[in-house]
Amino acid sequence: MDMSFSPELEPFRQEVRSFFATEYPQDILDKVRKGHSLSTAEVRKAEMALGAKGWLATAWPKEFGGPGWSIEEQYIFDEELERAGAPTVTPMGVIYVGPVIYTFGSDAQKEKWLGPTRSGEMGWAQGYSEPGSGSDLASLQFSAKRDGDEFVLNGHKIWTSAAQHADWIFLLARTSKGERKQQGISFICCEMDRPGVTLVPIIGIDGKHYLNQVIFEDVRVPAEYMIGEEGKGWEYSTYLLGHERTSYARIGAKRKMLSDLKDIAKAALAGGNEALINDMSFVARLADTEIKVDGLETTVLRILSSVADGGAPGNEASIVKILATETHQAITELMLEACGRAAVVGTPDSASPDWAADPVTAYAPPAVSTYFATRAQSIYGGTNEIQKNIIAKRVLGL
């Protein structure tokens, strides 16, 4: 298999690379490189910079305001974004709910939500998991009861990523009960500042605010906030999850992390890290991880090539989810090992500035933060065990 890109795409790559070097907000790049958290205003600034260029909703077709890029162009853009160290585009809007809206939504919903989502002015959160419904998402109890021209929402959503930055949340809600638990679920949107919505931050082990619990108490939303048909939310969510699980791959980011890892290892060896010097298996494990990234990239390209017509990746996306999370975790483990004692410094938001004087400890804070955050990757979006069941049943037909 020829994995190289056509030479005709090189000018496009250089255009993207130049944009991040000269037009993209450099203060955002600097903050992300140091591992610091972005404020809501900074998230909006970063995404509106891409939106102004027409490069935020990169996978959207032209008819809905996307650039109409080929699969290869989308892939190159993602590579260059990650190579530049730019923050990952918040996926809940342009990757998750956007395609659901333009595929299943009404003309009025497309008019209301697609434009500001595509420009980066509107942020979204995803209301799927509940305190008693995580990997078994179909067991959710969050209710939406019809009352005239409104739905009344009640229940809790948890592990809601980036909800503190969101203007809207899309959720799965039970509107009726069917013979199967997947029946009677609807796909509904709601403003985050609507009366009755309460956001409770969940602080991670690294001290950062990634996650939230969102509580709904008699929250009234117009009936036209429901996307598609009542009771078909499970169908729409399955379509969405195919995009979500493929988006985990982030090949460019992993290659950058591998490059950083080699720099850390060189600095550690130069600094006399005896444990690393005497560990003959470190280089072998590093090489093995590089091979896994190559394998992940091949798998992603194969899946993307099969949906070049704009469809959803489907159940094969579960393969990417497993490979991507396990490979990412392996890289962060090697990073911590290379940092050695410097890894006890803590997170970027709490580390003292004088640590940056040492080449190893300068890498340690973001490495520690990434290590802790990555532990959850094999859980969220459906645990790796759930993904293996999907592969066995729906891909292999076992």
Rank of each mutant, 00 (worst) to 15 (best):
E73L: 08
H36Y: 13
G51E: 00
A52R: 11
A46W: 02
L81P: 09
K45H: 05
T58R: 10
K45D: 00
V43Y: 05
R17E: 06
P61I: 03
A49F: 05
E63L: 14
G54Y: 00
E8M: 09
V16F: 02
L81M: 15
R33N: 07
E80N: 14
L50F: 07
S37N: 12
F5H: 00
K62F: 03
A21T: 09
L50D: 04
D30R: 14
L38K: 11
V32Y: 04
I28G: 07
G68E: 11
H36W: 13
R17C: 06
Q26R: 08
E42R: 12
K62V: 06
V43E: 05
S18Y: 05
K53G: 09
F20V: 09
G68I: 13
V32A: 10
G68S: 13
H36T: 10
P7L: 02
R44F: 01
A41I: 03
K45Y: 01
S4E: 04
S70N: 12
D78P: 10
G35P: 08
G85L: 03
R83H: 14
E72F: 08
S70L: 15
E63S: 12
G35V: 03
E15Y: 03
E10A: 08
E23F: 09
Y75P: 00
R44V: 11
E79S: 12
M48Q: 10
Q14C: 00
T22H: 07
F19N: 07
G65E: 09
F77G: 12
Q74C: 14
E82L: 12
P67A: 04
K62E: 11
Q74K: 13
Q74S: 11
E47T: 05
K53N: 06
T40N: 15
E63M: 13
I71P: 02
V16C: 08
E73P: 04
G35K: 03
E63Q: 14
E42Q: 14
D27I: 06
P11M: 01
S18L: 06
I71N: 00
G66I: 13
L56E: 02
G66S: 12
E10H: 09
I71V: 08
W60D: 09
T58Q: 08
A59W: 14
A59Y: 13
R44E: 01
W55A: 13
Q14H: 02
S6N: 12
G35A: 03
G68H: 13
A49P: 07
F20Y: 10
L9R: 02
E73T: 06
E10M: 09
F5R: 00
L81D: 10
Y24H: 14
W69L: 01
S6L: 10
E15R: 04
W60K: 11
M48K: 09
T58D: 06
Q14N: 04
K62P: 05
L56S: 01
L9S: 00
G85C: 05
I71M: 05
Q26K: 11
E42G: 11
P61E: 02
V43P: 03
S39Y: 00
F77C: 12
M48W: 01
E23H: 15
R83M: 12
A41Q: 07
E10N: 10
A52H: 06
Y24M: 13
T40H: 15
K34L: 12
A41M: 02
R44M: 00
A52Q: 10
